[in-house]
Write a protein that binds this DNA or RNA. Structure first.
Lengths: 86, 86
DNA sequence: TCGATATTTAGCTAGAACGCTAAATATCAG
DNA sequence: CTGATATTTAGCGTTCTAGCTAAATATCGA
């Protein structure tokens, strides 16, 4: 999961999809300078990490953010905000 | 910064140093199966990302976590926990 | 100064990541 | 069925990452 958000393009995909609620693959790919297959692979990486999920709607692949999964990361970071002695 | 925490060993280093407050490089390296130079590089990566800082104490290099830096990541994650419409 | 201790730097190799183009797959419209 | 649209899969070359060993650097104790 951490590796998935290590790439700037993937972080931006994640934010963009989150803001919109859900987006088709092409709509996402259209916002990036990268070639479609490149963005397509980023989507696959994000999905493999459990950060995105997708379902077909006709010929579109619609992606949405998995917030629960991101919650795990926030939870992990929480360890650093609590006092280690407490 | 995200790339820095993409590696399991580096996440563990971060947590371990945090729990202890501060640790010498050798003390850290001793806890991993990896060769010292490998861990040494992980430390450099974490420091380059601003997640660790170090100072010499005699012949020891003592590392500590930079919490403010981690705060930025938590802040970024916050975007996903707030409602995108609000 | 000399040897031991603590740690890093240098340099190598194997494997993964990331970009691309070209081709394949699947759905819709006529 | 046929052609157009939406997206992925396949495959290639380059660059980055992560492991290692061997050598260099710096400090301490005698």
């Amino acid at each position: 999961m951490c590796a998935a958000i290590a790439h700037p393009a993937r972080r931006q995909i994640l934010l963009t999809v989150h803001m919109r609620g859900s987006m088709a693959a092409g709509e996402i790919a259209g916002r990036f300078a990268h070639a479609w297959p490149t963005t397509s692979r980023h989507l696959r990486v994000l999905e493999a990490a459990g950060l995105l999920s997708h379902k077909r709607q006709g010929r579109n692949h619609v992606y949405a953010v998995d917030h629960a999964r991101l919650g795990l990361l926030t939870e992990w970071l929480g360890w650093f905000h609590r006092d280690p002695l407490g």
